[in-house]
Amino acid sequence: MIRAENLYFSYTGTPPYVLDGINLEIADGEYVSVVGENGCGKSTLMRLVLKLIKPTSGTIDTAADKIGYVPQKNDASSSNFPITVYELLNSYRKLLHRKDKSMIPRILDQVKMSGYEKALIGTLSGGQSQKVFIARALMGNPELLILDEPSNGVDLASQAEIYALLKKLNQENGITIVSVEHNLQAAIANSTQIYHLSEGRGHLCSPRRYANEFLKAKGRDDSIA
């Protein structure tokens, strides 16, 4: 689904690189969590996948025609924007040239947000607005869903709902998911693979192996069997 070869990126076009020779292959149907310290290049990698920025050198390609994107939640911009849940989704439906109006209540039901059509986005809780943004991303029937810290600013109960939904979308609908994560517990519990980025380089491993590496690095011996 996603293939990166000798991928280098720096915002100035010269070293030091934010991404320093990334080689990555994510297969169809995977649920990959991208983890790492702040500023290690997780969001930059996602922006490269989404073609919002261009690599300094190397290549990054995706086989998906339809990509859904759930950006990092920005309370400041969305809370002041005068738009209802229905207006937001309906605008996107029209941009997609989809005539079926019934898709809005159907998708809102899928993300457990039925009944919130008339609510202003700014009046929703962090978890509710995140579910609306996932609903918006799902309207284009994506093959690949990219999320940037989906649990950021979301209460624990809503986090559980969001991760259950993502897991369901991955396992039942076959949507490939790539999610930038700070929430290591959620990443280990839900992903099929973890991509760990550190100092511009990364490696892909199983959640179990990542958990053991993480515990070892923290000096704890209670590795997961």
Binding site: L50, L52, I67, Y69, P71, S77, S78, F81, I83, E87, L88, S91, Y92, K94, L95, G140
Partner: peptide, 19 residues
């Protein structure tokens, strides 16, 4: 109208949506 709303709401997401 709809493109302008989308760009005003989230310019980056609008770009990803193909606008």
């Amino acid at each position: 109208y709809h493109q302008l709303i989308y760009i005003a709401f989230d310019e980056e997401a609008a770009q990803v949506a193909g606008i």
